[in-house]
């Protein structure tokens, strides 16, 4: 036990002689700032999409190829997140879109955001793969806020990438 105490004492004294308090504070500060800034680095955050181009607030953005609705990116939300005060409908319209940046086809879930009156901005109606209303599961003209949450009005639509299409 005595030898353990001695070893710790020696180590502590050596540290005190060679390392200044300021240098400890400096490295600790750098580590804290570094860790905090890591999430800000520019990395691809699309689910499974490694590279993409375009403006999510513009109707010609690749993920919107089969959409019919107001873009949540123009309504206080984002391409994947419903605006505050609304919630995504659990029943959705699903389509596939080609990402020109990598040439792959992706499965996209178009979730209606419900709970506020129509956003009215950035109406986007591209409809690839859309079928008439009498083929209910293949038509994007339905308001899924009514289908799933009877009391909630439609506000806008988000476009979530599910995965690459496998054939």
């Amino acid at each position: 036990m005595a030898s353990y105490d001695e070893a710790v004492e020696q180590l502590t004294r050596r540290l005190a002689k060679t390392v200044s308090r300021r240098s400890v504070l400096r490295s600790l500060g750098a580590a804290l700032v570094g860790a905090a800034s890591l999430p800000l680095l520019p990395v691809a955050r699309g689910q499974g999409v490694e590279k993409e181009t375009g403006d999510p607030a513009s109707c010609d953005y690749w993920r919107y190829c089969a959409i019919d609705g107001f873009l949540c990116a123009c309504c206080g939300g984002s391409v994947t997140v419903c605006p505050p005060g609304t919630e995504p409908a659990p029943i959705t319209w699903v389509g596939t879109c080609r990402n020109a940046a990598d040439g792959k086809d992706y499965i996209i879930s178009y979730n209606d955001c419900c709970g506020k009156s129509s956003c009215g901005r950035c109406l986007c109606n591209r409809n690839e793969g859309d079928r008439p209303l009498y083929t209910a599961g293949k038509s994007n003209d339905y308001n899924w806020c009514v289908g799933s949450n009877a009391d909630l009005p439609y506000h806008c639509t988000v476009s979530r990438v599910i995965s690459v299409v496998s054939n």
Partner: peptide, 18 residues
């Protein structure tokens, strides 16, 4: 399996969920 999963996501997920 990958194709079946893809088909599920395109044709079934809209109502049955991911």
């Amino acid at each position: 399996d990958a194709r079946a999963r893809s088909d599920y996501m395109i044709h079934c997920m809209g109502c049955h969920g991911e």
